[in-house]
Design a binder for these strands. Structure first.
Lengths: 93, 93
DNA sequence: TTCATAGTTAGAAGTATATCTAAATATTTA
DNA sequence: TAAATATTTAGATATACTTCTAACTATGAA
């Protein structure tokens, strides 16, 4: 997992809101779009950023593409944050 | 703790590197500056962003201002991430 | 095959961010 | 007080990001 795309992806409030919306279950781009004022094209752009950061998965189901949280990345994200903010106090790594 | 300034602050690789550099202990702006190619003014700008996000503390000591990690924010950050990425699966909050 | 629906991609415009140099502020020393 | 050191602030520039509209691709139905 690369830190930069991950932190970058989380830096936008709309993208964090997308993650929240996906918590109860997978949704299509169209369903997600109902919750935002911007265009479907902009949403699609946000989704591609979240996908590149491995925060979500995409799966085509007929005409729709449904998006779901990639929860496996959560653990790794915890570790990243811990590594970033822990105090080493001179102990060896 | 406001999520937006926090995630925004973490989105820049130089700022994350500053956090790493402060892990073994507090450093002055000048000492931090030795580790970066950009100017001291730019470093100062990054420090002010980290400070606004409550990720670091500043304390004047004579001519120097020394910066240290604000580790108390770590716990809150964990919770934020957990809240963001957990799967609710229809359970009540 | 043609039409309709769902979503992505391309290119442009406006805003925000990172960086620079130069000037300003604060503290210590002479 | 004046000079030196440490850091911040101001204003400018270049790059990156978010968003838009329009055009394109893919799937399903007529």
């Amino acid at each position: 997992m690369k830190p930069q795309p991950l932190f970058q992806a989380l830096a936008d409030p709309s993208r964090r809101r997308i993650l929240k919306l996906l918590q109860p279950g997978a949704l299509s781009a169209g369903e997600l779009s109902d919750h935002f004022a911007f265009s479907l094209a902009s949403l699609s752009h946000h989704l591609s950023i979240l996908k590149s950061a491995d925060l979500i998965c995409a799966e085509r189901r007929g005409q729709h593409i449904i998006y779901s949280l990639n929860t496996s990345v959560t653990e790794e994200l915890y570790r990243l944050i811990a590594d970033l903010l822990k105090v080493t106090s001179g102990e060896p790594a």
